[in-house]
Each structure stands twice: as structure tokens, then as C-alpha cells.
Nucleic acid binder design. Structure first.
Lengths: 228, 228
DNA sequence: CGAGCGATTGAAAAGACTCAACCACCGTGG
DNA sequence: CCACGGTGGTTGAGTCTTTTCAATCGCTCG
């Protein structure tokens, strides 16, 4: 395990480089650093929960976080998987409402926290940050439209192929490391069904399965299966 | 037909009152009025199209507009139905990208247009507008998370009940007036299936069907069927 | 009047879910 | 050290839902 509780300095934070804060000046980074606190999260720890009151924003320094919503039967639907550099939990602050989704770590993670007040102050005085956020929200809305269309029109097999490609780009060099249940909740199907389809894809040579971990072998083929 | 090509004055625009521009001062409204142009759209006319370059924003003065995305088979998935007062087409401007969805009128509509440049200028000088937009985008993202969860977890029958309730609040006093195909593309199912389920709901006394138009009779029951 | 489109119906096939059982692994406590 | 219990993963079979395809109907428009 490479990570343990440690203090992170925004100026040295590699994941900041790819975040909403990437365009900050040195003095802004200094200010940011001054206002944030850091925390280590073990695997499967909640970051924030649906229907709770937002108190600030979370900045994912390392690790991965699933963002999900519970359906009426209590089943999780994973909406998004966040990686290092992403800022979480700020939408509910703008909507002036409770969190509409929950977030939980998928692996050990270091996550910084900035209070609502400090974040909104930064927003007031920082045009670039505002523009970055507008851009980010708009891009996310475009992605959600794709998800809705996929859920409504694609078969589970197609969605699984699509999800594996997405996860491959999230896990980069590593093998995909999600429980079967999480994977099913991401694809939007029952666990049993997911397992059967995984086996199919394995037999077709698209993926390799190492117990829990999944390695993508043939992206081209998966892309074809996913229906473009 | 109550509407035909006419010039709309922002100061008198009733739908502006419920829009992102609701908080404008008199002089800002004046400015807005000066920069916009008006157009009448017949039924089923495109407002903007997926993959096109955004040139400005559209302000729906009267009528209704479906916002949809095409799946890989070309089938429309309706993401949202916009009503009077809504501003359309601004997300792609922020993301600096092409439109990710298309928009088409569902009935005769009056729609005003504000160029990209003018809109962005307004944005620069108007904190409240910015905040309204941040809020609006955040709320929409919350709604999309609900849609994704519904699509992934609810049966078509449940989704139909849910969709009818949503449409009932969109059409207010009027009966729901959508083609079977549009309704199916909103619910996310095949037209034939939709028709069968509509008949079921009619036989259960939830709705009345007047040829093409659908009247909601029992909201309570629909809510129960939709799975809360 | 005939073409054409949207709406509807029927029947069959495919897809997805549920339930129940079983397996494999892991950590615990005796 | 090993039996035990628990959790997550896997398999099979049956059922229900949903889609697909084909055909018909009703209406409007030229």
C-alpha cells in the first residue's frame, strides 16, 4: 500500500494539475492549500451520502471513488467513477439542496476537503475557476445524456462492453478491480447476468479474468460489441 | 392556433419570469431585448442539431421542445422536454464543443435567439446570471442521475407511469399530446410495447385515451405503479 | 380514390431477471 | 492447526419481460 495518512501540499499535488484548479496562480494555490484539510480513506468508506447537507467539496488526491444513487429497491446505480484530480460534491452546493448521490471509496484514497464557505469565496474571486466549473458541468451533462441513451437502447452485453472500455481508461495500466456487484451496478444489470456475459467475453478473447481482476485484451472487438 | 410570427419584448415576456433571466434588472432586460431576435417555429422543426457548432442560445417563449440524442441505431432518446421559460443550447457553448443533443419543437413555438458573443458578455458582467446557471446545471445533473437510475433499474411499466406523471406536470391543464413514438422514445422502449402498456393503464383507470391525447386520471395510482 | 403514415394487434423469439444451490476463499476462534 | 461461518463469486433452470416481425386498421392528404 503506497498511501497512508499524510499531509498533501497543493503546490506539489500532481492530481491538482488535471483538476478544476489546474489554472490557479501560485498565490491562489497557496490560498487553496491554506484552506484545505487532508484525510486518508480506507477502502469502501463513504465520502458523502445522498440526502445529506453539503458542507464543502472533496478533492480526490489519489484513489478512486464511486458516485452512485440508490433506486427505489435500494439497489445502487453507479453514475460515475472518479479518479485522482476530480473534485466531488460541489453540485449540491450550487443547487442549494441536499446531495442527490452518494460517494464511496473503491480503494484506499487520499481526499482533501474545502469548506463550502471557502470554496464559494474562491469562486467569487476567480473567473477562471468559474469557467472551468461551467465547462465541467456541461461536459458531464453531455456524458449523462450518453448514459441515458445507452441504458435505454443498448442490450446489457453492449453496455458491458462499453463499460469495460470506460473502466480500462479509468484503471489505465492496472487491471480493472471492481467487485462483480459494483460492476453490475455500473452496467445496470443483475450480478448473475453480468457474470455470464463476462464469461462470454472471456471466451471470445476480449478480456482475461484473474479472479476478481479483469484485464482488457481486445479494445477493438469490445468497441465493435458495444455497438460503436 | 394562438401564435404566429410576432416580435416579443423581453420586458413583457411572461416566460422570462421563470427563466434564468428572471433576476435581471430593468436595464439588463433592456439590454437583453436589444440583443435578441425572435422566430416562429412550426411543429417538428429543428432548433439545433447534435454535432453542430453552437452559435448562441435559444429562449423558449412559448411552445414545447424535445431534447434528444440519437443512439447508434439512429433511434431518438428523449432526454428532456423543455417548456416556456427555458433556455436551450448553452451547455455546448461552455464545453467549447459541438452540441451533444438535438432539439426539435413538439408544437408551434416562439423562440428567441441570443448570439454566443452577446450571451457570454452578459455572463461576464452578471453575477446573478452565472449563479442561476450554475444552479440550473447542478439541478439538471441531479435529474439526469435519477433518469439513469430509472432506466437501469425500473421496468418499462414503471418508467411509463413515471413518465406520464412528469408529462402531466409539463402539460399542466392540457392533455398530454405526444406521438406514440415520441412517448416511447421518452420512456425508452419500443412503440408497440408502449401501446400495450398504455392500454393496460387505461384499463386500470389511471389514464384516459382520446385518440392521440392522454389524460391523467389517477396520479396516486400512477405514483404507486412507478415504484415511488 | 389510393398512398402513406401513425397506431394497433398478434404471435414468436430473444433477452434479462429471479431463485436456489453450490463453490471458493478468507479470517476467526477453539 | 483445523473446523466454522461468512462473503463474494458462479452455475443452472425456469419465468417473465421486452423486443421483433408481420400484418391490419384508420385517417389524412394530394
Amino acid at each position: 500500500m503506497n498511501s497512508n495518512h499524510k499531509h498533501i501540499t497543493c503546490a506539489n499535488c500532481l492530481s491538482r494539475k488535471s483538476s478544476l484548479f489546474s489554472t490557479f496562480s501560485d498565490s491562489q494555490v497557496e490560498d487553496l492549500n491554506h484552506h484545505k484539510s487532508c484525510a486518508f480513506y480506507a477502502k469502501n468508506q463513504p465520502v458523502f451520502l445522498e440526502d445529506n447537507l453539503p458542507r464543502g467539496v472533496f478533492c480526490l488526491n489519489s484513489g478512486k471513488v464511486k458516485v452512485f444513487k440508490r433506486g427505489s429497491e435500494g439497489k445502487e446505480q453507479i453514475i460515475h467513477i472518479a479518479v485522482a484530480g476530480e473534485i466531488l460534491g460541489y453540485k449540491a452546493m450550487f443547487s442549494g439542496d441536499l446531495y442527490k448521490v452518494s460517494a464511496t471509496t473503491l480503494e484506499e484514497s487520499n481526499i482533501c476537503f474545502i469548506s463550502k464557505e471557502d470554496f464559494l469565496n474562491m469562486l467569487d474571486s476567480n473567473t477562471t475557476l468559474r469557467n472551468n466549473i461551467l465547462k465541467e458541468l456541461s461536459i458531464e451533462l453531455g456524458e449523462r445524456a450518453v448514459s441515458i441513451t445507452n441504458m435505454a437502447q443498448k442490450s446489457v452485453r453492449e453496455r458491458l462492453a462499453f463499460a469495460l472500455l470506460m473502466l480500462d481508461s479509468i484503471y489505465k495500466e492496472e487491471a480493472i478491480n471492481l467487485s462483480r456487484e459494483d460492476l453490475a451496478n455500473f452496467v445496470g444489470t443483475a450480478t448473475e447476468n453480468l457474470i455470464r456475459l463476462l464469461k462470454e467475453l472471456k471466451e471470445e478473447g476480449c478480456i482475461e479474468i484473474h479472479v476478481r481482476k479483469i484485464e482488457v485484451l481486445d479494445k477493438e472487438k469490445l468497441l465493435r460489441i458495444s455497438g460503436k
